[in-house]
Design a binder for these strands. Structure first.
Length: 476
RNA sequence: GCCCCCAUCGUCUAGUGGCCUAGGACGCCGCCCUUUCAAGGCGGUAACGGGGAUUCGAACUCCCCUGGGGGCACCA
């Protein structure tokens, strides 16, 4: 396949969500795999709902993901003249007409039809107004929109790269608005014009747009553009109830995933597996590996459930594949935000090395290192962990012995190892250690104890154990 | 109401007429490892929606049913 030119064309009416990111990813992968171009087009024809902050947000998020686009983004709001010119051309050619029905009137008639059990859709009453009537309606100051006249008979069809031949009878598609009464162009028109002007070779998007394809294709043909792009409609992403993925299912904004500590590559890897799979059993893959084997012919057909648990697993896998210094750099912003000036970068890197083996998100790594960056007096021992400490057999004896040991032992991880000491006391490490974890880290479960004590330093370690011992009070 | 699309373990998927007593992964359960928690290792649980048809032979082809999703905007 040659000359691949695709585009991702979000409407800037909100943040980039997982569905949009998946669409962007599949376009990007397709372009990169075939050595083609991946363009960005902002579909901001709905002036009322589009906001500059969303335009910026979407671009920043795509960059964070690493889905870099070629060339400058095309903003449809800067191309209204071009669309209006096309609309004018269609009216002159008799393919579109002025409609004086107001939005409310059309809506009312549709509701009436629906209530009566009839099929809704524009009834075509302004289709063939004579010039005099048109002039008088315009003179009345009636709002005027432009509608595209759809064929009254015949079939519209196209060959979808993932679904095969798709067709629909024209009579089921009613005349639709291409220019609003406020003079702004509508999606269908802008889409048809831009895909032609930008010489888009393949349109890859969500299945929710499959029905609109017939209208865009008809416009394109009416505008006199030879040929058509190839279309590929991707299965939708759904939530736990199998409905369209939305906020009530959990995080859907890409920013939320970023802020929760997910790696862009893990997210991309997971998203790639939603509706696509390589021809072998690989799942955890680098972006380059995916690009090398990705193609649209292996895209699946049915809606996919976004599984947060599998994403967590995937993120952990990618975390473990990073070098410690790379991972530390990724976690650093989260740690800085939490620990500010108290953060000791050398200690932090060591902690990341320990946390790496047991984390699913960057935030977890930052959190697990917390005990290293709080003052001894500010360490909070979680209630359940304190209960566990209190319930530990011979806990006073254990703490006293550990304190004594740490006060004088050589300060190496090997020397700090408490197991020989516990063995001397006839205690099982597995039973006794959770109490020490709690006193040192504030939790009975956390980073490996001996390394943690080593990183903390003798003074703090002894101080924390002593504080726990004092809080415990004398044996009664 | 009308139109379109879809249908393999709970979830993501492999599978394109015999290699399938249906494979992998997440999750879950058990065991091992173990300095807590994880991670890791090993094992287990679990699916071709139903009915016809074609065929020597159907998860794979066709039809019907059922179920799910999407669309029918002066949103995109």
């Amino acid at each position: 396949m040659t000359d691949v030119r695709v585009r991702f064309s979000p409407a800037p009416t909100g943040f980039l969500h997982v569905g949009g990111a998946r669409t962007a990813l599949f376009n990007w992968l397709f372009a990169r795999h075939h050595g083609g171009e991946f363009l960005l087009r902002i579909e901001d024809t709905d002036v009322a709902r589009s906001r500059q902050e969303w335009v910026d947000g979407i671009q920043h998020t795509l960059e964070w993901l690493g889905l870099h686009w070629d060339g400058e983004p095309v903003l449809q709001s800067t191309r209204f003249d071009r669309y209006l010119e096309a609309a004018d051309h269609l009216v002159k050619a008799g393919r579109a007409y002025e409609c004086f029905c107001t939005e409310d009137e059309v809506k009312a008639r549709n509701e009436e039809a629906l209530a009566a059990g009839r099929t809704p859709g524009y009834d075509g009453r302004c289709r063939s107004l004579d010039p005099a009537r048109r002039a008088s309606l315009a003179a009345e100051g009636r709002p005027r929109s432009i509608r595209f006249r759809t064929p009254d008979s015949g079939t519209s069809g196209f060959d979808d790269m993932v679904r095969g031949p798709v067709s629909v009878e024209w009579p089921t598609i009613h005349d639709f608005v291409i220019v609003r009464s406020n003079g702004t162009p509508v999606f269908f028109l802008a889409n048809a014009v831009d895909d032609a002007d930008m010489e888009i070779s393949h349109v890859v998007r969500g299945e929710d747009l499959i029905d609109s394809t017939h209208r865009v294709l008809a416009l394109r043909e009416a505008l006199g553009h030879a040929g058509r792009p190839k279309y590929a409609h991707l299965p939708l992403l759904v939530g736990a109830d199998r409905g369209k993925l939305s906020k009530r299912h959990g995080a859907v904004a890409l920013e939320d995933f970023r802020d929760s500590g997910y790696l862009p590559h893990a997210l991309l890897n997971y998203l790639a597996l939603l509706g696509w799979a390589p021809d072998d059993d690989r799942e955890v893959m680098s972006i380059d590996e995916i690009v090398a084997v990705f193609d649209l012919d292996r895209v699946t057909h049915s809606p996919a459930f976004f599984d947060y648990q599998k994403l967590d697993w995937m993120n952990g896998e990618h975390i473990r594949r990073l070098q410690v210094h790379e991972l530390a750099a990724d976690v650093l912003p989260f740690a800085r935000e939490r620990y500010g000036e108290r953060l000791d970068v050398r200690v932090f890197e060591a902690a990341v090395g320990l946390a790496r083996e047991r984390a699913t998100t960057l935030v977890q790594i930052a959190d697990q290192a917390e005990f290293l960056f709080v003052a001894d007096g500010d360490l909070v021992v979680a209630d359940t962990s304190w209960d566990r400490l209190v319930a530990t057999e011979r806990v006073r004896e254990i703490l006293d012995a550990v304190i004594a040991h740490l006060e004088k032992c050589e300060w190496t991880v090997e020397a700090i190892d408490l197991r020989p000491l516990l063995e001397t006391l006839g205690l099982k490490a597995r039973k006794a250690l959770p109490a020490v974890y709690a006193a040192i880290e504030g939790s009975h479960a956390g980073l490996p104890l001996f390394d943690s004590i080593h990183l903390l330093g003798r003074g703090s370690a002894v101080a924390r154990l002593t504080a726990a011992r004092e809080r415990l009070g004398p044996d009664r």
